[in-house]
Design a protein around this nucleic acid. Structure first.
Length: 134
DNA sequence: GTTCTGACA
DNA sequence: TGTCAGGA
C-alpha cells in the first residue's frame, strides 16, 4: 500500500548510482535532462535518487546496450500507453488477452522505433548491435 | 573528497 | 559522451 512511497524515497547520491547502474555521471545527468528520471535534490543541490530512479536507469541502460538512441528510449519509457493492450474487442477472443509474447513485443517495439524515425546507429541501418529487433 | 553546471583544443 | 574548469 506504500510501495510507491518507498520506491520514490530519495536515498542515493550520484556516486552510488554510478556504481549500481554502471552509467557515467554525464549519462545520468543527460537522462535527467530528457525527463527520463526526476531525482530529488538536497539543500546543497546534490541529487538524491530513489529506487524507482535506479530501476528506471537500469532499463535505460538495457535499451542503450541494445543500440537504441534517446529518441527511441524516450518513445518507449515516456509513453506507457505503448505497452497497454490495445482495444481488445470481443471478436478477437482470449488469444488477445494473454500477455505479449517476445515475438509480439518485438513487433510492437520495432514499429514504435521506426515511427520514432531513429532506427539507425552511425548511419548503419540494422546495426549488428540491434539483435533484438531482427 | 564528492557533486554541480556549463562548455568544447 | 568524455573531460576540464571553477565553485559549493
Amino acid at each position: 500500500m506504500s510501495s510507491h512511497i518507498r520506491r520514490s524515497m530519495p536515498l542515493f547520491p550520484m556516486g552510488t548510482v554510478m556504481k549500481l547502474t554502471d552509467l557515467s555521471a554525464r549519462q545520468i545527468r543527460y537522462y535527467e535532462e530528457h525527463q527520463l528520471i526526476q531525482p530529488e535534490r538536497t539543500d546543497g543541490n546534490r541529487r538524491l535518487f530513489s529506487l524507482y530512479d535506479i530501476d528506471r536507469l537500469l532499463e535505460i541502460k538495457d535499451l542503450i546496450d541494445q543500440g537504441i538512441n534517446m529518441a527511441g528510449i524516450k518513445k518507449i519509457l515516456l509513453d506507457e500507453k505503448h505497452f497497454e493492450p490495445h482495444q481488445d474487442s470481443k471478436e478477437q477472443g482470449e488469444e488477445q488477452k494473454r500477455n505479449f509474447t517476445d515475438e509480439e513485443l518485438r513487433k510492437l517495439l520495432r514499429k514504435e522505433l521506426i515511427s520514432a524515425g531513429r532506427f539507425h546507429r552511425n548511419g548503419h541501418p540494422y546495426s549488428e548491435r540491434n539483435r533484438f529487433f531482427h
